[in-house]
């Protein structure tokens, strides 16, 4: 018996692992102001609509990792309600990297499309 839902879930997770960094960098590149985790999660929810691609909790380690590689900067600011928030913004290295990554993504997309269509 093939456990299709579990396999699909695993496939989705593996896809996300690569794409999350690209998505997060793009979101912060498009935003004029620094954003905190919950804002990013909300925005991604709007983008994904009914289909939810990844758990919001999985965004944060990716943000931390992008920050430690120097592609993002962050600062903690107190909020009126609740705990202080960590605001993220893209660095100039991040912008340069994003351009390269978007190129990679385009090539990858057309490659996968061709493979699926079999042209």
């Amino acid at each position: 018996m093939v456990d299709s839902p579990t396999l699909t879930k695993k496939f989705q997770k593996e896809l996300n692992a690569g794409i999350a960094s690209l998505v997060m960098l793009s979101v912060l590149d498009n935003s004029k102001e620094p954003m905190y985790g919950y804002q990013i999660a909300k925005l991604l929810d709007d983008y994904s609509g009914e289909a939810s691609f990844m758990k919001q909790g999985a965004l944060y380690p990716v943000l931390r990792q992008l920050e430690s590689s120097g592609l993002l900067n962050s600062s903690v600011e107190p909020s009126v309600s609740g705990p202080p928030r960590r605001y993220y913004e893209i660095t100039s290295e991040g912008k340069e990297t994003l351009v390269v990554w978007q190129g990679v993504w385009k090539q990858m997309k057309s490659f996968v499309d061709k493979a699926i269509k079999g042209v």
Binding site: Y36, G37, Y38, A41, Q56, G57, Y60, P61, R64, S79, G82, P83, P84, R85, R86
Partner: peptide, 12 residues
């Protein structure tokens, strides 16, 4: 991880 979760959950 704890700080991230606390920030997110309280805000959400």
């Amino acid at each position: 991880a704890l700080a991230d979760a606390e920030e997110h959950l309280r805000t959400a």
